[in-house]
Design a protein around this nucleic acid. Sequence first.
DNA 1: TCCCGTTTGTGAAAGAGATCACAAGAACAT
DNA 2: ATGTTCTTGTGATCTCTTTCACAAACGGGA
Lengths: 216, 216
Amino acid sequence: MARKISESTVRRLSRYLRRLRELDARERRSVVSSAGLAQSTGTTAAQVRKDLSHFGSFGKRGQGYPVRALREQLEEILGLTQRWRVAVLGAGKIGSALLGYGYFTQRGFDVVAAFDSDQSRIGLDLGGVRVQPLSELKRTFEDRRVAIAIIATPVEAAQQSADMAVGAGARAILNFAPVKLDVPEGVAVREMDVTLELEGLCYMLTTGGPAADDTE
Amino acid sequence: MARKISESTVRRLSRYLRRLRELDARERRSVVSSAGLAQSTGTTAAQVRKDLSHFGSFGKRGQGYPVRALREQLEEILGLTQRWRVAVLGAGKIGSALLGYGYFTQRGFDVVAAFDSDQSRIGLDLGGVRVQPLSELKRTFEDRRVAIAIIATPVEAAQQSADMAVGAGARAILNFAPVKLDVPEGVAVREMDVTLELEGLCYMLTTGGPAADDTE
DNA sequence: TCCCGTTTGTGAAAGAGATCACAAGAACAT
DNA sequence: ATGTTCTTGTGATCTCTTTCACAAACGGGA
């Protein structure tokens, strides 16, 4: 089957899945067309069909795609048929928010551990998870088979935390610290930098914005 | 000068800027080569040069780029010579975390207001900002000239919140709710969905990971 | 001044991703 | 059965992005 799937395609697949889950659970729709999916995920019908065609043919001509079955296919493709165990490194503001984040569970992720270097936070119960000291990180990662680490530390501690996570067996990292992480080959990293996104918005406002149209 | 700058280019510019600020403030370096910047932002030297060349020529051949001046240029390009006023909609876990997020101020963003629909949260002081009821949203946006709204509500309230923000004059939205927002033309939206990113990591783990390069 | 090592800026080539356009398949009415 | 309408799946095309490759510029040393 398909070999090289681009990151942008994977991103869109994930959006399709998000929408399919809504359609299935909330709106009780049983079929959806590529045009419908495109509309509600911000892309085009052709793009939807092309994306899906890399993995097989899931629709019926003239009818569209069966919501439930396509949802399951996408879960399969994205590797979401298993639940994933996640650990949060850094139990400050962002870390705490993530530990209480309601959408993880229903989307297949279990936050099974939290760590912090600050003595005063250790032992706290955040969203049902006890904050542990870094000294317990390696053992916990191994015991609980944590595959994904979420870095929610300040910039200064981020690289070091990432190193520890990788050393303890993490194979993927979601990084909230506004710094580029160096990781060994084979470790996947995705970055979520709020100010980076805000800056992108500023760019659009200062260029596309005032000078785009003569609308005022 | 340059006409159409792609979103990926803008993203990289923002990363260059992030790195330049580190070099300037923390590491006290006064020049940096395209190769150096590339290295620490995860791209290639040619890409750095091409990106910058869209806006002018900022380096000295044989020497590299002056850190301070290039930083200022990028701030200019991205529209960061002014400070931006931001409001947070939704004062739950994520909203609170954002209100206490330390990197906004030093990066040019001021969170000047917070809103929630929950009576029990109104009046709270979160990170120096008082949580207001939605009824005060429009007036506050206008009075304080809020240009950017951060949506940190649950999914169900996200679209409605976005509508209110746009109605009150917001021209850009940073959306943390895992749902696609519909906004009028001219309003910029960026989405930050944690589970979407996690799913991307899962895809890499299940495909690229175990079976990196074998035949199938 | 002239040479040498270095690094930028940029056209040209290559590569990737998105869009087009249409034949093929499916349901349904007559 | 046949025609009509709808929508998928996909080669071909087009557009955008990245990479390549090299001349031009700079600083320093002799």
